[in-house]
Design a protein around this nucleic acid. Structure first.
Lengths: 188, 188
DNA sequence: TTGATATTATACCACACGGTATAGAAAATA
DNA sequence: TATTTTCTATACCGTGTGGTATAATATCAA
């Protein structure tokens, strides 16, 4: 139980800094202080390790998102909670979120992208559900849930990326600004 | 002269679809119908090949950008030309631009990111120059050239990425909308 | 204690990796 | 024609890759 977590943690760090393809299984094992068979015992193969690293770290974010996306007929409030959930997770788990971002922007045939695809999809579906519910109160949004979900997610990741490049800070003011910008993009 | 271009073209395609680390020199040589020593004769090593692919494809974009960024005291017009230059290049050279995007979002210690960094920097400097000039006519922009350049570029790449995912189209209407959104973000 | 199961290390496999020494052609120069 | 330079192929190198067969050890239930 201890070694498994250790391997996950070391793999995350290495994948995040240098990328999945550039890191060998050997190196992960060495950094974790174990040997390859131990790693293969827990994760089957390298791809399985990547998927476990991604999924088990994403779960924490997803539970926060599900809580935040609870729609109570106040869209700006809900969006604020959702975006805040993203920003605080990105701020508290930068190593993970950097890896995730690099994965979803990877080439379409790469292992990284294929592994990240389902995670991305789950977020989109969740956001779509939110916008479908919101369309009940805002008729002019009806039928647009897909582009809304896509562009909200794109905006969130853009802001996070800019934060990681030290160009902005993910404080409350930024959150409001982002949502304002998003809403303005919708209703125009 | 023929083999060199052929290698560049094949490498671009493979890097764009599967990523730099996942593609071997052997495979590039096979696809180009030549052998490894030929490749190493022209590019020295794998990293040199990547840099050549990136730089020689970027040059076409840069000349278009330099022409577009010529500021004649009409910021909206200049921005429209710049964004249009980006969008049309992304539309006409999707294989290249996909590779470029995946590179700038790669992990910071990866070869891909390190190779893309200078190209990204050149674009930022060019855009900063534009905003510095524009600040002569729009006093309230003064001193903000850096965040403006960063966020314009981020927005452009976000739109391009959404186009590649078939969520939007990069037509004239989208261009105006993007600029409108950017200007609104600035003056608020 | 016994037996089964889960976990770990040693040692190894075939293979692909990036890269090169050597030398043969081809082309240009003298 | 002789010579030099550019370009290309054969064949190879050491190393590291993802992955595994085997067996020892630890854990735990009966």
């Amino acid at each position: 139980m201890e070694n498994r977590e250790l391997i996950l943690e070391c793999a995350l760090e290495l994948f995040s800094h240098r990328g999945y393809d550039a890191v060998g299984v050997q190196e992960i094992a060495e950094k974790a202080g174990i040997t390859k068979p131990t790693l293969y015992h827990y994760f089957g193969n390298k791809r399985g390790l990547l998927e476990s690293v991604l999924k088990e770290n994403y779960l924490k974010l997803e539970t926060a998102l599900l809580k935040a996306a609870d729609y109570r007929r106040d869209l700006p409030l809900t969006l604020h909670r959702v975006v805040s959930a993203y920003f605080s997770h990105a701020a508290n788990h930068p190593v993970f979120y950097r890896m995730y971002i690099s994965m979803i922007y990877s080439p379409p045939e790469s292992e990284s992208f294929k592994a990240a695809m389902p995670v991305l999809q789950r977020q989109l579906e969740m956001l779509e559900q939110l916008f479908i519910k919101a369309a009940g109160d805002h008729g002019n949004m009806r039928g647009r849930h897909k582009p809304y979900a896509v562009s909200l997610l794109a905006m969130v990741n853009t802001y996070i990326q800019m934060c990681y490049s030290n160009h902005i800070q993910l404080n409350n003011e930024t959150t409001f600004k982002a949502i304002h910008q998003f809403m303005h993009g919708i209703f125009s």
